[in-house]
């Protein structure tokens, strides 16, 4: 009985904490200026969308293509050859959540200063 209560409280705590962290990531996290595009673990581009001209970037992975669009200082996935198209539905990169294409192993994420310093 006692273990059950502990397990219930633990589950409730996990639920609340994950909820709070989600809200932080979705709405409150400050946005860095630089965006990193990674394919299969290798960094392809580090860009500042605010300073980029509108253009399309095509990334290929095992014969499948993803087209990333930079427009008006924002980034999103325009086309993808993957089965689920979750990366397209994610929309513009405008919160703490990266755009991820699992099948094509492509990640578009904000680059925070910490990783930048480590890379430099």
């Amino acid at each position: 009985m006692k273990t059950k209560r502990i397990l219930f409280i633990l589950a409730a705590a996990v639920f609340l904490i994950s909820g709070i962290i989600s809200v932080y990531l979705l709405f409150l996290r400050p946005k860095p200026e630089k965006v990193r595009i990674t394919s299969d673990g290798e960094t392809l581009y580090v860009l500042e969308p605010a300073r980029e001209e509108d253009r399309l970037i095509t990334v290929e992975y095992e014969g499948r293509e993803n087209v990333i669009e930079i427009k008006d200082g924002r980034v999103h996935m325009l086309k993808a050859d993957c089965p689920d198209h979750i990366c397209i539905e994610t929309g513009w990169l405008d919160n703490g959540l990266p755009i991820i294409c699992l099948p094509n192993r492509l990640v578009i994420e904000y680059e925070d200063g910490r990783t930048d310093a480590a890379a430099g």
């Binding site: 996990v14 639920f15 904490i17 994950s18 909820g19 962290i21 989600s22 990531l25 979705l26 990674t38 299969d40 673990g41 703490g96 959540l97 990266p98 991820i100 699992l102 192993r105 990640v107 994420e109």
Partner: peptide, 17 residues
């Protein structure tokens, strides 16, 4: 492990929630 990036961890709290 597969994507070789920790970027996917950002989704973990939302997934768990």
């Amino acid at each position: 492990f597969i994507m070789r990036t920790t970027a996917v961890l950002a989704y973990l709290p939302i997934l768990i929630f």
